[in-house]
Amino acid sequence: MGSATPVDDEAALIAQLRAGDESAYEQVVRTYGGRLLAVTRRIVGSEEDARDIVQDAFLNAFKSVGRFEGNSKLSTWLHRIAVNAALMKLRTRKRKPEQSIETMLPSFLEDGHHEERFKSWDEPVDKALERAETRQLVRAKIDELPDGYRTVLVLRDIEGLDTEETAKMLGLSVNATKIRLHRARQALRTMLAPHFAASGGGKATP
């Protein structure tokens, strides 16, 4: 995959940014723009909003690069700016009331056993995800999670933030963040299961 060129001398790049070097700005946008766009899109669920947010994030970052402290990576810093803006967008947007996630969580019999018999999945996920359409399917299912759960899953499992930082960004307690992540993962499992355990239930692809 012709991925963005890694920046091996970040300090030099930052120095160029501070000096107002036009080519440095361009390099930063080209290097980090793709991932920023992806995570922002995943949070706000709209290509158009994502582009606006990423554009603003770059502009804000360029303006405040003087205050950037070298103790985090440039990419981490950019992600934080974009993710915060995306979360803000989500908060201000009037959306349909949050769907319930309850129906996608496991249910239990009175004696505490699972109600469902879980059919084993056909192949290891890394194998299944070698197919582009499966990767696409997983992303589509993540996008279907209710906002409050999808955001936690994206920040923790995809962006790789820790629980404390995720909680802070979302204005949630650490405990609430953990519960949401657990539920988000469980719900995603429920959505993926019919596609990953084709045998027995018949192939559940539309």
Binding site: V125, L129, R189
Partner: peptide
């Protein structure tokens, strides 16, 4: 499956 789900999300995104 829970672990596979987490992994699937990471790989897909």
């Amino acid at each position: 499956q829970y672990e596979s789900t987490v992994k699937a999300g990471r790989i897909a995104c």
